[in-house]
């Protein structure tokens, strides 16, 4: 992974097609809210399927918390759309089928010479794309637990919402 992708640094403003083929930019997708950004190998990986089932359960909390989820893989949009539908996921899946950012981010999983996928990596980002935390998920236990994501989202929300402390009458 690129050396500067660490807490406090700014994450690159990627531009990629979503699962329906619409061009999307990360800075537009975050839209002023905290963002959980997940790079994953692809639909075929059992570890991803397991991890994403957890995220699908998590989305019920995220949907009412002014927070967004975005995942990125090298799966083409139609494959990402099928994976998303199969999981009943309701967040945006970005497709880097052309592998435009693999090299730039230095996130190529070199041990998989068949799919040339992203190394499973998770980021929590502030709305201006400043990195809060990074998880290297090459091994399953390196991935963030939902509790760790909750903790980060609390930290980010507390920092960006001026009314975190309930306004007094």
């Amino acid at each position: 992974m690129r050396d500067d992708l660490k807490p406090g640094s700014s994450f690159p403003d990627l531009e990629l097609p979503d699962h329906a083929g619409n061009p999307r930019r990360l800075s537009e997708l975050t839209g002023g809210d905290p963002l959980v950004l997940i790079f994953y190998r692809g639909w075929w990986c059992p570890k991803e399927q397991s991890f994403f089932r957890g995220l699908v359960a998590f989305q019920d909390e995220v949907e009412v918390a002014y927070t967004r989820l975005v995942s990125v893989s090298v799966d083409p949009p139609e494959v990402a759309a099928a994976f998303r539908a199969g999981l009943a996921a309701r967040w945006t899946f970005l497709s880097d089928a052309e592998r435009r950012y693999l090299e730039e981010l230095d996130l190529l999983e070199t041990t998989d010479t068949l799919h040339h996928p992203y190394v499973p990596t998770a980021f929590t980002l502030y709305p201006d794309l400043t990195i809060c935390s990074v998880w290297n998920g090459y091994w399953v236990w390196g991935r963030p637990s939902l509790e760790e994501l909750r903790r980060d989202l609390r930290t980010i929300t507390k920092a960006i919402r001026p009314d975190w402390e309930v306004p007094s009458a």
Partner: peptide, 24 residues
């Protein structure tokens, strides 16, 4: 209307019709 990022279903301010998805 561009697709919202998801999975957010809340509106962001009084009277904003979903899928408007930001506070400002």
């Amino acid at each position: 209307t561009p697709p919202p990022t998801g999975p957010v279903i809340q509106r962001y301010g009084g009277g904003e019709p979903w899928p408007w998805d930001r506070f400002a």
